[in-house]
Design a protein around this nucleic acid. Structure first.
Lengths: 321, 321
DNA sequence: GCAATAGTGTCTCTGAGACACTATTAG
DNA sequence: CTAATAGTGTCTCAGAGACACTATTGC
């Protein structure tokens, strides 16, 4: 049974040391607060956008490609390697606020879709400087809003187009357990074509008797620091791509990558760029139709039948989300 | 262009201060490492299990109920309130390793399903002692393995049955944007019936023109510290319940809550307990059938037709996951 | 008309939901 | 036999995938 003490006419619960909460806090901040060494906390951000692919045939509607912003590191560790934007949390700054601040620094935008992905902190040597825990976020930006060139120095921040393929799967059974390995190929190419990053990852899924499923992603070959991406950022990218693909199927997340008015084909090409495969026109339209509103506007200027413009139907969420 | 220097016959890149990586790290750890105040990092864990409901009619097959382990806080802050188990990260300990350590302390189990949920760090005053970032995990335990009573002191750790209902939804349109509010009622009852925790949360979803969807969960009424759960743990619980319900639909996650052999009805009642609604027998069997293997074992002793026992089909994942 | 893109109609297959039905045991 | 639970058959409806088809524009 806890002790109760009256302080200024109000009951205060005492702890085992006989302290009120105010007394405890005062004592804790003086004696206990810095007793243990603390890790550094950073946020890292996957900044995605979608833009037109260069099309050799000028008369064709261009395909889209998914892009991610990478920044060339100017200092150790991983000097000269490409990293996703990120930075240290300030002690009086919220976690998401840190991510928003970085986003603003890179793009001068703040009101964009932002979603927390995962917190990376299992490897105590992720960062050779010290112990760092990093919470990763994903931001989606409509490329027509990206007038401001990312970062201060263009050479140090580039948009990379993303191509990801699942190459093969292998299965192994042992002692009633199943191990599944997927080989994931990721290729990044900078807009100017000067930079090219190639990775192979292995996604290892372990299925145990009672349904315990553990999935780990590792580099293949198991080398990180000779590759051209910093830290474990290739894993963060891979994780973000998974999340983006999944959310595409059952949320209106893709509209964050679109301008306010768009054609159906443009939207479809965004889906195709993210999913990495072609979709069938009629099925796509049927599925997406309830999420959009048809406008009277048509896009003129093409040498063919002009497409109608659509816009996101904000009411869609009411029924289906 | 970065400078290159030869060190022991190997090329080393120099940073702007003319340091090699080794020199930089030595300098950084001496001069920079503790320049900024760091937050504390904790992991908090939702430990879920499922057990039989007490059934007044002894001849009926008992329903199941979802339970979560809560611990009564013995010290400030939130002294006497119920909290989910958690603890501070050690500087040389992985994030998941911290969660596993806590799990082991509470249940003496280590090989259970564990999944990272979300990292809470937007509110810089979550913890009145100091800035704390908390990564939450969810663990699923088969209750037949819970022979060891949780914790050292039974009075301080109790299993609470969970009942959650979505009470009502309201919608508001303004300036082409949509605001949706769901009222979520959560009731927790300890096994001995002595403790009862009741909360109402509001889940506010904001849909903007270009598809930006932001969801926030707030207390209703907007009071935290007079309620009987510590910190923001009710939100963590709510978040975990969402995740658990979602994963139930498309992963074999539920088998982590089952013993190795179980009847179909038992599995169904686990699903019903988590989803909070009744399911139709035939449909459930049809959906689940590929995930399980029928055994020759039947459970005798009942006064009726004895049910067959099933076990998880580890091969199911190969095709469908 | 032709080339190119925009957009539709419809068949099939699969899976979820609802519900009526049969099967098997103890006593 | 009855009570109770175990387990199946089948109808309907909605959505995904495939693919052939029609529509509209500039030139």
């Amino acid at each position: 049974m806890p002790n109760i003490k009256m302080v200024d006419g109000k009951p205060e619960t005492l702890n085992e040391r006989g302290q009120t909460e105010a007394e405890f806090l005062e004592w804790y901040k003086r004696e206990e607060k810095d007793k243990y060494e603390k890790p550094s906390v950073t946020t890292d951000m996957l900044l995605f956008t979608v833009s037109d692919k260069k099309e050799s045939n000028n008369r064709k509607v261009p395909d889209k490609e998914l892009k991610v912003l990478l920044i060339k590191r100017k200092d150790h560790p991983y000097i000269g390697k490409w990293a996703i934007p990120g930075g240290f949390l300030n002690i009086n700054e919220g976690l998401e606020a840190t991510a928003i601040r970085e986003l603003k620094e890179e793009t001068n935008l703040d009101d964009v879709y932002l979603e927390q992905l995962y917190t990376w902190g299992d490897d105590v040597k992720r960062d050779p400087r010290m112990r760092v825990i990093s919470t990763s976020y994903m931001a989606l930006v409509d490329s027509t809003h990206l007038k401001v060139k990312a970062g201060d120095d263009a050479a140090d921040a580039k948009w990379f187009s993303i191509e990801r393929n699942i190459l093969e799967e292998s299965e192994e059974k042992k002692d009633g357990e199943v191990f599944i390995t997927k080989k994931i190929d990721i290729q990044l190419t900078s807009e100017d074509g000067e930079e090219r990053i190639v990775y192979t990852l292995l996604e290892k899924t372990h299925v145990q008797q009672r349904g315990i499923v553990k999935t780990r992603v590792v580099n293949y070959p198991a080398v990180i620091d000779t590759d051209n991406m910093a830290f474990d950022h290739i894993k963060i990218l891979n994780y973000g791509l998974d999340r983006l693909q999944n959310k595409l199927e059952y949320t209106p997340i893709a509209f964050n990558l679109m301008p306010q008015y768009f054609t159906f084909i443009e939207l479809q090409k965004v889906y195709e760029a993210i999913l990495g495969r072609k979709l069938i026109v009629a099925n796509f339209r049927r599925k997406i139709k309830p999420m959009v509103i048809e406008t009277d506007i048509v896009r003129e200027g093409s040498a063919h039948r002009p497409p109608k413009l659509f816009t996101f139907n904000v009411d869609w969420t009411l029924n289906s989300f």
